[in-house]
Each structure stands twice: as structure tokens, then as C-alpha cells.
Write a protein that binds this DNA or RNA. Structure first.
Length: 571
DNA sequence: GCCGTTTTCGGCCCGACTGTTTTCAGTCG
């Protein structure tokens, strides 16, 4: 897929134009386009072949031409020219927190410093103090920023960030100065991984709250401390926590602003302008600076003629238009989930017995569970032989006799072999209630081979679900390169569901891919892939991915009742 | 560089905090 490359080139062009001091809107156009292209599920090459590049929002005639240059010639003239002019090390310098294009350019023009290494030396020897506008405090900030850059702040997984955020909220909510308090930012939008934690408070006096905030024992250091806003580093995970305080009549407007996303905010503020209003974090104001709304998010949306947009949708992916035309989807909720269709047991590499899994499923209010152990070839995970399948099936049959209004489905997570066949013959597969198929080996195959394997698994009449379709494992490996559009087509044509795997490191399909799958008519299964019964509690993470993908309960097969599901499984 | 229910030209979200300089530029979200 060329998208990553195009996005990277556009991002670099944007940075280099900024370093040159070019028009800031031109800089933004490249940056914006980079973000859009990075999010596309369809290969820009295919879009270009259809001649549809300029239909992408943010891509005009000029950028479309540059994309075509990159498709045919791997680069574009502007990029090559800029590279001759601007040392690549300056792009690295821009990634140091606190350093922007102006400062990097100033430093480079005066000292020829073009790497983080050289900058660190110049800062520590106080050579930088000779530059205009740079004094001791700025030098200290640069040294500190380099430290953060070198440690490389990893994104923190959603559940970990929620737990840390919860500690901050719990520590602050009972202060008498605090009225309302809410988590905001990407964590409220339920992104799978976040780079900081945002917390909003309505309260008074603000200074008192800031004072309490920065001296919490869970705070490692204070980065910023103003009258209404402060930024600290938490001890745990070294994650940055931003606190913003407003008066209570502004809480809704501030929550909107602080929840983002940035692109969503820009669109919403533009929409306010179109109505003749101004929207900021204090409220919606008319031409005479009179506040018309701001206490709640709901009243701001209503004033702008929109339905309430759930935080998970606020990514500038068409939600504002949908909110105006009353076409927002009714998003799937955790309470819509009727069962977990992918959990393991002690029969293969799970740590819980089938009975324990079933007990947990009932405790979660489910109607069914599918216990899907690994297949024969996956020796490392104790894949099941024919005899073991028989034994497992007998145990499930016996257990099911005990239950009222609950059912264990006998399933398997069968390996997709290198040639695209499945790891059990058809006569074995058809004995299972449910078959989940997955790639666990040959991950380094070519895009063409991997795509072909998954497509043939979709076509197998006994396969119901493709598990973790892209193989992404946060911190360990990227998604493997497959042609998702071919997979979506096969999944839709052969009525095979694709999984949103709720395991925190996976979350695979991700939101944009699941959204594209839905558009192609593909059904989704949201599963936990639990290897220990407690892990089944992670279902909410997968549901959040589904919500970010605009899924309703009708898109998700495990929102079906048992009878309906059994019928669907007949294919 | 993009875009159009005021527009094919002239706009492009808006404000807090910091550091350095005495009123503001740079960075960030």
C-alpha cells in the first residue's frame, strides 16, 4: 500500500515548508492531506486509477498530481527540491517537544546545528545562549525536551490510560472547589492508545484546584502551571496529564473543545461561523459577544442545528454532516453484546476451563459463548487432535444440559495454512458449531500471498469468522500488508464475518478498517480472544472500536439472540 | 494548497501558557 509513503512525503513537505516560513495554510494543507491519506483503507493507487483522487476531501488538483508523481516515480519534484535545501536532521529536531519550526530555523541559520545530538551539546555548553531570544530558561526547556524525545514516549494503551485518568479524577472530584469533572481528549473518544490524558473541571477558585493538582502524589513533575490550565507528568508511564478549568457555564463548550479531535473542532467552529456565531471553549457567541450556549455539549450541538455527536465519532469522518441531516447511526453498546464468540480453554493454550469461561459469560449477562481452541498444527498452543475435539465436544454437551437460557458453542480457531486451506478437513470443520479462522504462521509472505490465504479462508463454507485479520500486535509487530478491499469483498460475498479482536494490544480490525468493512457490507464479530476468563471483561474495548467505526448492533453478529445466531451460522 | 447556501478570490478555529521583552512571538492542543 502506497498510502503510508504518500502520507510520509506530504508530512515531510509540510514540515519543510514550515521551516522555510512558508504560508501557514499551505503548510496545513499538506499536513491535513497526510492525515487523510494515512487513514484511507483503499490504496491511493486504486483511487488514482479511477481518477477519483480529487474527490478525497483536502486533495485538490495540485496534490492529486503530486500523488500521481509518487505513484509513478516514487517522489515528487517539490519534495526533491526541498530535500536539497533543508537538511533531514531538521525534521528530527522538530520532533523535540517545545521546538517548533521558528526556533529550529533560527538555531540552524545561526549555528548550522542539524541534529539532536549537536543540539544537546550546544545546549549543555550554553552555546545557544548567544542566540537572540534564547536565554537560560529556554535552554533548560530544550535539554528537557531532548530528554523526552530520546526516551520516546510510547502511546499508552486505552485501559491503562483510563486507570491512570481514574486516579486523577478520584483525587480531584471530592475537592469542594470542584463542581463537574470529566476525562476529555482522545481517551474520551476511546482511541485504542493515547499519548496524553486530558481532564476538564468546572470549578472555583481555579488557582486552588491547580495547586492541589500539581501536588498530587501521583504527579512526578509539573510542566506548565497557569491560572486556568496546567500540565504535569504522571509517575506511572510518564504520561502527560493536561488539566483545564473553566466556569460552570462553559463546561459543555470546554468539554467539546477539550475532547477534540482537532480536525473535528475546526469543522465545528467553521460551522458556527457559517451560522454567524463564534465557538470557543467558553461557549457559542453571537456578533455582540453574547453567550448563546455553553453549559452542556447538547445545547451547543442543538444551537448549531446538529444531533448530539458521541465522542467516539468526533474524528471529522462525516459525523457533522450526518448530525445535521439526522443520519447519525445508533452506535452499538456493550449491553447489546449477547455473547463472546472467541475464547480459549485449557483444551489448548487457555488457562481457564470451559466451565469457568461459561460461568464468566453468564456473569457478564451473555446468552452464549463459543469456546474456540487452536487447531492441530499449532503445536506451540497445544492445538487439538481429532480425539481431543471429541472429548471437548462431549464435555460441552454435558455442561449444556445444566444451563437454562445459556449455551456453550463448540468452536475452533483453525489455522489458515500457507496455501489458504484450513488446518482441519471439511468433515471435521462441519462438526463444530462455529469456526473462527486465523493466520498464525507465514506472516512474512508477500501481500499477494497473504491476501490470497485470507480470501480463500473467507470462501470456505465452514468458516464463520476471520480472527484478528491484519495481525497487528501493538509493541510487537505492525499489521501485515494485505489488500483489505479484496478481503472485504470476499467476506461480504461469502457472508464471513471479520473480527474486532478486543485484546488491548490487538484491537484488530481497527476503527477505520472496520468502518470500511461495514461500508462494503461485511458483518463484524466483536470478540475478546480470552485465554483466561477474566480477559472476557475486555469486550468494552472492542465495542469502543466498533463505535468509532460507526457500527450499530445490526452490524455485529454477536448482538444476535441465540436462535438468530444459530441460523446465521448455517450460512 | 483547498474550497464555495455570501465566494473561482479571499478567506482559512481559537485561546492558554511560557519566556523574553516591555507588547509579543512561538508552541501546543
Amino acid at each position: 500500500m502506497l498510502n503510508k509513503k504518500v502520507a510520509e512525503i506530504f508530512q515531510n513537505i509540510s514540515s519543510m515548508l514550515a521551516l522555510k516560513g512558508e504560508n501557514h495554510f499551505r503548510v496545513r494543507a499538506y499536513e491535513h492531506a497526510a492525515g487523510i491519506i494515512e487513514d484511507l483503507t483503499e490504496d491511493v493507487k486504486d483511487i488514482a486509477q479511477r481518477g477519483a483522487l480529487t474527490e478525497i476531501e483536502g486533495i485538490g488538483k495540485d496534490l492529486a498530481e503530486k500523488i500521481n508523481d509518487i505513484i509513478t516515480g516514487d517522489t515528487t519534484a517539490l519534495y526533491e527540491d526541498l530535500k536539497k535545501e533543508i537538511p533531514s536532521g531538521l525534521l528530527e529536531l522538530l520532533r523535540v517537544p517545545g521546538l517548533g519550526p521558528k526556533t529550529v530555523k533560527l538555531i540552524y541559520d545561526r549555528t548550522k546545528i542539524d541534529s539532536v545530538e549537536k543540539l544537546e551539546k550546544a545546549a549543555k555548553t550554553r552555546q545557544l545562549a548567544e542566540l537572540p531570544g534564547i536565554r537560560e530558561k529556554t535552554i533548560e526547556n530544550i535539554i528537557h525536551g531532548i530528554g523526552i524525545y530520546q526516551r520516546g514516549q510510547e502511546a499508552v494503551l486505552n485501559p491503562v490510560a483510563h486507570r491512570i485518568a481514574g486516579q486523577f479524577v478520584d483525587s480531584l472530584k471530592n475537592l469542594k472547589e470542584v463542581g463537574q469533572i470529566s476525562v476529555a481528549g482522545s481517551l474520551r473518544r476511546e482511541k485504542g492508545a493515547v499519548r496524553d490524558i486530558d481532564i476538564l473541571i468546572a470549578g472555583n477558585p481555579m488557582q486552588k484546584i491547580i495547586d492541589e493538582f500539581v501536588k498530587l502524589p501521583i504527579v512526578k513533575e509539573t510542566r506548565e502551571r497557569g491560572p486556568a490550565k496546567s500540565s504535569v507528568i504522571a509517575r506511572e508511564n510518564n504520561i502527560q496529564v493536561d488539566l483545564r478549568i473553566v466556569e460552570k457555564q462553559s463546561f459543555g463548550a470546554a468539554l467539546l473543545y477539550f475532547t477534540g479531535s482537532k480536525e473535528f473542532n475546526i469543522k465545528l467552529r467553521e460551522s458556527a461561523i457559517a451560522h454567524g456565531y463564534k465557538l470557543n471553549e467558553y461557549g457559542v457567541f453571537d456578533g455582540k459577544e453574547k453567550c448563546l450556549a455553553g453549559k452542556t455539549e447538547e445545547e451547543v450541538f442543538a444551537l448549531l442545528g446538529m444531533d448530539y455527536i458521541p465522542p467516539e465519532l468526533r474524528e471529522d469522518r462525516g459525523e457533522i454532516d450526518a448530525a445535521i441531516s439526522h443520519n447519525l447511526p445508533r452506535l452499538v453498546e456493550l449491553s447489546d453484546i449477547k455473547g463472546d464468540l472467541h475464547v480459549h480453554s485449557t483444551y489448548s493454550d487457555g488457562l481457564s476451563t470451559i466451565e469457568e469461561d461459561a460461568a464468566q459469560a453468564q456473569a457478564l449477562g451473555y446468552r452464549y459463548i463459543a469456546v474456540c481452541d487452536h487447531s492441530q498444527s499449532l503445536h506451540i498452543a497445544k492445538g487439538l487432535s481429532r480425539n481431543e475435539i471429541h472429548k471437548k465436544s462431549e464435555e460441552i454437551r454435558a455442561l449444556n444440559k445444566k444451563y437454562n437460557n445459556f449455551r456453550i458453542l463448540c468452536g475452533t480457531e483453525v489455522d489458515i495454512n500457507n496455501d489458504g486451506s484450513l488446518d482441519y478437513p471439511d468433515e471435521t470443520l462441519k462438526e463444530f458449531d462455529l469456526v473462527v479462522a486465523a493466520v498464525h504462521s507465514g506472516l512474512r509472505q508477500s501481500k499477494k500471498q497473504l491476501t490470497k490465504r485470507i480470501v480463500s479462508a473467507c470462501k470456505n463454507k465452514y468458516a464463520h469468522i476471520i480472527a484478528h485479520p491484519t495481525g497487528k500486535l501493538a509493541g510487537q509487530r505492525d499489521a501485515y500488508d494485505i489488500d483489505l478491499n479484496e478481503v472485504f469483498k470476499a467476506a461480504a460475498d461469502y457472508n464471513t464475518a471479520l473480527e474486532i479482536n478486543s485484546y488491548p494490544q490487538r484491537l484488530d480490525l481497527n476503527d477505520t478498517n472496520a468502518m470500511a468493512a461495514k461500508k462494503r457490507g461485511v458483518k463484524i464479530a466483536i470478540d475478546t480472544d480470552s485465554h483466561q476468563f477474566r480477559q472476557m471483561e475486555a469486550m468494552g474495548l472492542g465495542v469502543n472500536v466498533g463505535r468509532r467505526a460507526w457500527l450499530t448492533k445490526n452490524d455485529v453478529i454477536n448482538c444476535m439472540g441465540l436462535e438468530e445466531l444459530m441460523k446465521w451460522l448455517e450460512k
